[in-house]
Each structure stands twice: as C-alpha cells, then as structure tokens.
Design a protein around this nucleic acid. Sequence first.
DNA 1: GTAGGGTTAG
Length: 852
Amino acid sequence: MATVGSHGRVHYDLPIPSVRIRSNPKNASFGSLKPWLISHHSKFGNFYSELRLQRKIPSPESMSTLGVLSSNQSTMDFSMSGDLIKDHVDSGFPEDALKVFVKMLECGFPLDEFRFFPVLIKAFGVISDVEKVREIHVHLVKLGVLDDIYVANSLLGVYWKCGEARDAIQLFWKMPKKDSVSWNTMISGFCRSGDYMGSLRMFSQMIREHGVLPNRVACLSALSSCSALKSLLHGKEIHAFVLKSGLDLDDDFLISGLADMYMKCRDVKNAGYIFEGILDKEAVRENAVIWNVMILGYVSNGYFSQAVELFVEMLESGILPESSTMVAVLVLCSGLLDLAVGKQIHGFAISHGLDKDVRVETALIDMYFKCGYAKAGLDIFKTSLNRNIVMWGAAISNCAQSGLPSEALDLFHNYRMKNGFADSLIVLAALRACSSLTLKSKGLEIHGLVVKSGFGSDVFIGGALVDMYAKCRDIESAEKVFYRLLDRDLITWNALISGYAQNGCPDEALKAIHDMQSERITPNSVTSACVLSVCAHLSAMTLCKEVHGYLLRRGFGSNDLISNSLIATYAKCGDINSSRTIFRKMPEKNEVSWNSVFLGLGMHGHADEVFVLFEEMEESGMKPDHATFTALLSACSHAGRLEEGFKYFRSMVECYKLEPQLEPYTCMVDLLGRAGQLKQAYDMILAMPCAPDDRIWGSLLAACKSHGDRRLAEVVADHILELDPTNIGYRILLSNLYEDYGKWEEVNRVRTEIKDMGLKKSPGCSWIEVDNDIHTFVAGDRSHHHTVDIYDALERLTLQIRKAGYVPQSPLVTVGPSDVLHKDLTSTKTNSLLFLATARDKDQAASAKIMT
DNA sequence: GTAGGGTTAG
C-alpha cells in the first residue's frame, strides 16, 4: 500500500511475496530476495520519486488508473503486469518497470515464472547503475535463475551497457551454456567499448574453438570492428564468409555494413562493387542508408565528384534524403569550399524539414565557416535550440581558424560558464586562439585547465601549448612543455622549431631539427619552411641552397609554402634574382607569394619594380591584404619614396577599406622621418588609432638623430623609455645623439642611468658566410686574418656611399635595413667580401655598428 | 520471455 510521506515522497509498505520457482525447485525460496527488497525498497522509493519529479515520469498513482495496479485489487492479471514491465522498459521508463515489479511483489504474486526477468534486468542496464546490477546478479545466483540462458544473456548485455567489461567477461566464461546470442553480445560488447581487436578475437574464437557459425548479427558487429581498425584484411575475410555461408545477400544491413567497411578501409573500388550489386534490387536500393554510406564514403576518401554524382542520382531515383544524407553532402561542400552549393543544400534541408537536426546544424555551421561565410555559421549557432558539446566545438574551433580568435575565446568563456567541462577539442581551439592573439595570460589559464582535465598527454594539446608559448615569445616555457611531453610527433617538433626560428634562436632551431631526425622523424614542408626562415635570419646562403636542393629532390618544388619561404629567404640572403625567379615560376601565386616578393624587392631597393608588380597583382584579381600594404610601404620606406607611400596608404584605407594597424604606420613614420618631416611623423604617431610600440618610437628616434632634432628626440626618448625602461639600445642611441651635440653632461647622465640600472650591452655582432665558413665580427674586432683588407673595403664603401649622395654620420657604418649599403656591397667587386650582416636582435639593430 | 545490427556533425 502506497502512502505519501511528509516530504511528498512515496513510501511503501513492505511486501510479503509468496514465490515459487518453477524451474529450479531446489532454490525455491524467495526468502533471499526479501532482505534485499527490505533494504532497497525505501531507497528505490526515494530514488524513483526523485527521478519522477525531475523527469515528470508517470507516478504509480497514475499507473493505477490503468486498472493494472490498483492497490486494493487483491488479484491482478499476472501476464498484464509482465507486459507493463516490458512496456515501461521499451518506452524508456525503466524506473517504472522496477516499480511495477516491486508492486507485484507487494501484491503477493507467485513468481513461478521468470518470463519478465530479462526485461527487468534490462531496466537496470538502462539506468546504468552498476552497483544495483551487481546486487541483482547476486540474487539471480541465489534464486538459481542464472542457469536460464535468457536471464544470463540479459545480464551479460547489461554489464556491457554499463561499461563493465570485466564483469561481462567473467560472467561469460562462467556461463555453463553459451548460445549465439551470448557470443554476439560479447563481440558487439568489445566493439562498443572500443576494444576492436578483442571483438575480432571473440569472433574467431567462437568459430574455431567453439564451432559456432556466425550469423548476420555477428558479422555486422565484426564488420564494425574491422571498419574501426581500418583492417581491410579482416574485413575481406568476413565478406568472404558472408558469401560462402549463404547469408542473405539482399540483407540491406549486411550490404551497408560491407560498403561502410570498404569505405572506412579506403577501398573505394570494392565499396563501389558492393553498391553496384544492389542497383537492380529494388528493395535494397530504396533504402537511403546505403546511399548515405556511399556518399559519405566518397567524401571522406576525397572522391568529391563521385559523391556529387551519387547524390544527384539518389535524388533522381526518388529516394528521400535523410539527415545523414544532408550531413554527408554538407561535409562535401566544406571539402569543395563551394558556398553556392552549400547554400542550396541548406535550402533543401529547410524545405525537407531536416535543418533542425543537431548534426545537420553542426555540419551547416562547419560548411559556412569553411566556405568563408563565418557570419552565417555563427547565426546558425546562435539561433540553434539544441547546442551540444560538438556544436560548441564546431563554433569555437572554426572561429579560432577563421581569423576570429577573440570570438573563439568569448564563446569558450560562455561555454565554460554554462557547462564547466570542456573536451580536448574545445581546449585545443581556445589555445590556438590564444596563440593568434599572443595572449599569454589567457594561455596560462588554459594550460592550468589542461593539467586539471588530464589533457596533458594529448599530442595535439601539447603541440598547441608549445606553439602558444612560442608565439607569446616565451620560448623557455615552450621548451619546458615540449620536453615534458611523453609523445612527440612531427607537429610538436615543428611547433618547437618554428618557435626557435621566430624567437631569434637559429642555433637552437637547427639543433632541434637534428634531434628530431635522430628520433627518426622525417621533416616535412613546414619543418623546411622553418629551416629556411632560420637561413634568412642567419643570412646563411649556403644552407639555404642546400635546403633548396634537398626540397627539390624530395619533390617539394611546387609546394606553395616552400616557394613562398624560398622567395623570402633568397631575398634576405641577398640573392634577389633567385627570389624573383622562384616567384615568376610559381604556377599559382597566393597572397603570401606576392607579399613576399614585394618585401624582398623592397628590401633590395627595387621600389619601381614593386609598383609595377602591384598593378599586376591587382589585375590578376588577387586582393591585397594588410601584409601587402605593409610590404608596399616598406618598399617605399627603403627607397625613400614618400609620395608613393602616401598614395598606397590612402588607397589602403579608401579603396580596400583596410584599417591600417601598427606596421603600416611604422613604415609611414619611417618614411616621413627619413624625409626629415619629423613633426608630421610625430603627429601621425599621436593620431593613429592603435597604441604605439617601442619600435615605431625607435624609428622616429633614429630619424631625430640623423636629422639632428635633439628636442624632439628627448620627447620621443621619454615615450620609449616609458614603454620599455630596460631597453639599452635606445638609451645608447640617445647617448650617441647627445654626443653628436657635445652635450657631455647629458651623455654622462644617460650612461650613469644605464650603469645604475645594471643594464649591460651585449656587443654588436656581425657575421658573413664565405665559402661555407662563417666569419664573425664584434665591435672593434681586429682579430680576423684579413683585417687590413676588410678595413680597406670599408673605407672604399664609405667613399662610395658619400659619392651616391648619402652622408654617413660618422666613420661608422650602422647595420640596419639600409638597402643603399646593401646594393653597393653586392655590386662592389670585392669578391671575398659579401657583406650581408644581420643584427641578432632589435637592441643590436638600434645600435650595432660594424667594426669601430 | 533473452541478445545482437547499418550511415551522420566539431
């Protein structure tokens, strides 16, 4: 009899069951279940009434209106109760099934049959409460009903459903009798728990050691395992068995299972044969699943046109596409980057009522982002009513990859606020967003989350962490993360190597490439691009040529990334002709190719050639971006072309609607500064929309020095030292400037400050590669065995510079991006000397001098 | 009365 307690919970009086076990009279006492019921009864009562409150499942009171469970009814239809249990389980209310069972005991039903035991056991599986399953296991043993194969098989299935592989395996081998259902439960259990080899082992053991022939269910499960393992060999064996065993060849489950196996094993041809085999079998042909399998199989194997054809054929055959068809075709559009077709599919999905499926929505989001229409993707995400972790992941990763890193981090934040847990893909995307924003504080926070969530051993996450720290210019932390990784793959190595390359650690980069190869990891095009960037840093022409040769031998000659790197590297190594040739020979140039050649030519003083090429770029329909204008303006600045500089700066804003960031402004300030228009340069810095950094001020400071504006120099120096108080380079520049004016007091003041702050100047260092040898020089160095020739050459160069109309400030030649110096050096017939000195860092760039 | 099956999203 049920009563409602003070807290609104339903309590039950204890039942006094009278039970007779028909098939096992020895264990006929139901008494053993009684203590269990006593101890669990009220627990279950509370448990289920809580569940009911949460999920609004029908109450026993409402069930009694069915006339089955009226508590004052002394006799109840036994078979109807069994059916009710089954109904509850089938309709997804296992709690109610258990309640009916308890009710039956209350009513004193004789349990002389256990027809409904299996279905009852299944109810435990749905609730997925292992402890309760183990308890009922004990009672099933005590009742002696586990000898019944139906009961045992049910329990076996429940253990697998609860993810308890060990209990399932133990039970299976203890079972005195096993039928095909028992075996199949094991084969699929292993498969669903991810132990695919275990699943296939069961399959083979069943046949070989126990002589049980697989039925279609066993074959389907085993095929799933083959697909997951991408094991074509095993898959073909099963296919052969299916053909020999006389299994139904018109079975559409088997056919789609086979086709899927072949597709997953990348054997598109055999998948095609399977599909052709059904074209004349109408019943099979009308099943959309096989079409879905084929279309998605083609897409994931890169057979895009076949996928398109099949989809068209499907529509023409009048087969109604399903949500999975939409997903497959949308993934196809993402692969083809075809926005127009993607939009059509979107419309199609709407008109067929398939657009509100989570997977379809997610595929739509991904398609819009991949096809460059981020806004549409975000709109779907924002209006979706069924966002799950995958959809969030799609939105966050796509934002991070589509140049919307701030949006990615905002979404990440929202997601964490709502859900707390983020999976490794979401964390990965957030880390990548931090990398592109060089947002170390946020990156550190996510690193903490990585450790807490146990994603530390994930190679992808590891690589992203290395990359994040490297991009945030914290190469020490990048190294630390890298060397703590248990698994290091090519990607992680590349992250470290490019980190070294980008942070001015060329030696470390080269060593890392060496170490990577001693771990038997072969460099790819990304690694090679890093080596090239190191060559550019070091102006290491020989190494550059060696790498180039290696790349040609490995067939990377037509790789975009490589060609672009070569353009930049040859230019930086002084060989602008090779740079130009590689650019010209590229069959398909992308934005980076154009930008690289502009930068290279500009660096070499070929401004006019850059201007002509830019027109060519515009004519070719390629759209200039921020980097293009930075390169153009840098060319202008190198050649002192103020007028053109202003022209491009205006066109950037007015024609291309690009808002200039710091770099173009730096070029403009440099240009104005060189032209002596110091006031305009200063005003431009003050008026620009972004915050000035030390470099732009540094450029103006250098201009102040060369044009002798001491008063402005002091103002500028204040700005710099506020931004970067420990930067010694600018302080030295300032002290040199005072020196020019004979302001010895000021000189002393600055020098004392430097001393008091404990700042040390690392000596300016230059080097040059001659016949595979690197010759290094520091300031005042006279140790080189050609020192006399070198100083002779320097004097001659200084003369030439004067002749060309440039006035060296002092007998010292400043190392820097001076194309004039560079041009003269390369054209001078001093064969032994090819001066391509590069300062190691910006400190030295500001003050390094070749040989005092 | 039991068990078991196919495609699909980041």
